[in-house]
């Protein structure tokens, strides 16, 4: 695991995430959101979970980001209006971050380096999904179908 790569990726991810949270133009925020997810996928690659990283890119850049920009397009008339920025959220977020960081730094058992492990191949993930995780997998399939139908019904034109 490479220190330099880690620093570069974390700066990219956090900067993009911050931009996604604070940029004024919705479209720019949505695109920074996509960049932030590329950064998170890079973290997964760095941690040796390539399959999850690829799945993340596939789902978030290919589907969720496009959905978000489509929604922005469909609700476009609303964009130009000025809207308030709630400063109490900043205080809460900073407090949460400080609390979490304090807790993490206090816990001595967390300052460990990664052990050497066998590379996680797609085959092993597939075997796990098809043996011990069959039921969760089926449930996810059901959930996704329900979400698909639900989203369709919600967004469908109302018959008058």
């Amino acid at each position: 695991m490479n220190g330099a790569a880690f620093i570069v990726i974390s700066i990219l991810t956090l900067a993009a995430a911050l931009a996604a949270a604070t940029l004024r133009k919705l479209m720019h925020a949505a695109l920074s959101f996509a960049v932030a997810f590329v950064g998170i996928a890079a973290f997964f690659f760095l941690l040796g979970a390539e399959f999850v990283g690829l799945a993340l890119v596939f789902i978030y850049i290919g589907a969720v980001a496009v959905l978000i920009v489509f929604t922005i397009l469909l609700t476009r008339r609303d964009i130009e209006k000025d809207r308030g920025f709630n400063w109490s959220g900043v205080i809460i977020a900073v407090a949460v971050f400080c609390g979490l960081t304090w807790a993490i730094l206090k816990t001595a058992s967390l300052s460990i380096v990664a052990p050497h492990i066998r590379a996680l191949t797609v085959k092993r993930i597939g075997e796990a999904l098809m043996t011990s995780y069959v039921w969760p997998l089926q449930c996810i399939g059901l959930l996704l179908t329900a979400a698909l139908i639900g989203a369709l019904v919600l967004a469908m034109e109302e018959k008058r």
Binding site: L14, A21, T22, I72, F85, G89, F97, L100
Partner: peptide
């Protein structure tokens, strides 16, 4: 974990302070 905590806080910031549903 600290990077993840920072990411979580930024998400919290976006969810709490922005008024736009997206």
């Amino acid at each position: 974990l600290i990077v993840s905590a920072a990411l979580f806080s930024i998400g919290l910031l976006a969810a709490l302070s922005r008024r736009h549903a997206i």
